[in-house]
Structures are given as C-alpha cells and as structure tokens.
Simulated assay, not measured.
Amino acid sequence: MSGAMTIAEGDLRFKVDVSVVFGGGAAAKKYVLRTTLDSIGVWKAKYVKVNTSPFQGRVKTTLKDAAIIDKEVWVFNVDATRSVDVVAAIEIAMKVYQVPAADIIRDIYVKNLNIESENLMESQAKVRANKALYKNTCNAIREAAEKLGVRGEINLWVFSSNVNPKIPQQDLHQSLNEGGARSVATDELQYKIWSGSNDGERAERFKTNLHLAKFTL
C-alpha cells in the first residue's frame, strides 16, 4: 500500500475516494494527505463540525494549519496552483507519516476542480478559466515534485463528467496536456459520486467520469 494526495477538498462527508482506479478497481492507500483551499476557520464554519486536533506545520518560511482527521492528514489554505503550497503540504505529511515525498505524491486525486468566481462568469469564460486552473495545477504539481526530488511517474486522477459544461472532456484533456501530461485517458466506466457545493449548503449524487493524466519526471 502506498499513499495519495487530494486537491481542493470540501465537505468532509464527500471527500474524494483515493482508492479508485480504472476499471472499477480499488487500490488501498496507507498514507493520505488531503488539502483544501479554505483556511481551517472557514472550512470548519462551512462544513460539518468535526472534532479536530489542529496544529501548525512550519516548512522553512511557510506556515500552514493542519489537522489529523480520521487518521488522515489535512492541510488548509493550500492553493494547488502554487508549487510552494503543494510542497509545504507534502512536507507536513512526510513528517507526520515519516515517509518520503514519493509515497504521497505518486497518486493525486481531484473532484470537479472549478474556479472560485465561476458563478459570475458566462459559459465560455468559465471553461477558459477552468482550463487555465487545471493547467496551472499540473504545472505546480510537476514543479513541486521536482523541488522534492521525486522522479518517475505521477498519476493525476480527475473526477469530471465528459459533458461537464464548466469544462467538457475535450477541454479538460487539452488543459492536462498543456500542463505537461505525457498521456491522458478516460475510463470507459462511469462512477456515481457525492459532491457538495463550495458554500456547504447543497450536495448531490451523480454519474461522472474518471480521467487519468500521467506525468513523467
């Protein structure tokens, strides 16, 4: 069993399933790092109230709030388009689990990554913004891996419907390729997942697709 990392987590009840692989299979993960763009205060106010044991993880000059929740490491205020944030989160998890960076970053999962101000945009502007978001996230992941001395293959697993109006399959794949992926594929199966709104007010279960972008360093 290895580890995994997630990007842009929201409601604890609907966290990303990091065991999923193509073909409907499952691969157990021993070390899990979950990151969220929200600060710990905003996250706790928006979503389900949980008992946490927050601590501050200092990595060089970067200070991040973190917590152990259900035996997993959560790091808050992580902007996945900034490699310095990605590095800081991984280094905190490395200290907690006492494992090398590669054990955390080999498999990265994200569910419906969307620009924060999307509700204020018209449809095509929204697609362009989300394409840039995925591309910049890919670049940050590759830069973070290089800074951490990780070599070899990194898998980015993306839950996103092929007909997602915010970023259809073709646009998603283009953005992943522009972000440095050497290959991008979509599973033939569809998956049923729960997803909560960014404000924590709504949740729904729907069918979606699973995509895999592979990066080689």
Rank of each mutant, 00 (worst) to 15 (best):
120 L>A: 03
30 K>N: 15
72 E>K: 06
166 K>C: 07
174 Q>S: 14
83 S>E: 09
191 Y>G: 01
51 N>Y: 11
176 L>V: 00
190 Q>M: 15
117 S>C: 07
1 M>W: 08
180 G>Y: 04
8 A>D: 00
194 W>Q: 12
105 I>G: 14
106 R>G: 10
197 S>P: 03
115 I>N: 01
189 L>F: 13
60 K>S: 14
57 G>P: 09
39 S>A: 07
65 D>A: 09
48 V>T: 12
161 S>M: 02
181 A>H: 06
104 I>M: 08
107 D>N: 14
32 V>Q: 13
151 R>W: 03
102 A>Q: 14
153 E>P: 10
58 R>Y: 07
44 K>I: 12
1 M>L: 04
62 T>C: 06
179 G>F: 13
22 F>L: 03
174 Q>P: 00
42 V>D: 13
41 G>N: 05
94 M>I: 01
6 T>I: 03
147 K>N: 07
94 M>V: 03
186 T>Q: 15
52 T>M: 08
147 K>P: 09
47 Y>F: 07
33 L>D: 13
199 D>C: 03
35 T>V: 01
149 G>N: 01
169 Q>E: 12
101 A>R: 13
62 T>Y: 05
189 L>M: 15
128 R>L: 15
121 M>R: 10
160 S>E: 13
31 Y>M: 08
77 N>Q: 12
5 M>Q: 06
4 A>N: 05
97 Y>W: 00
27 A>F: 10
207 K>S: 00
4 A>F: 11
1 M>E: 07
44 K>Q: 14
51 N>G: 11
51 N>I: 02
2 S>K: 00
202 R>G: 00
62 T>S: 11
190 Q>N: 09
130 N>G: 00
215 F>M: 01
142 R>S: 11
110 V>K: 02
78 V>R: 14
116 E>H: 13
176 L>F: 02
14 F>Q: 11
145 A>L: 04
177 N>A: 11
142 R>Q: 14
201 E>N: 11
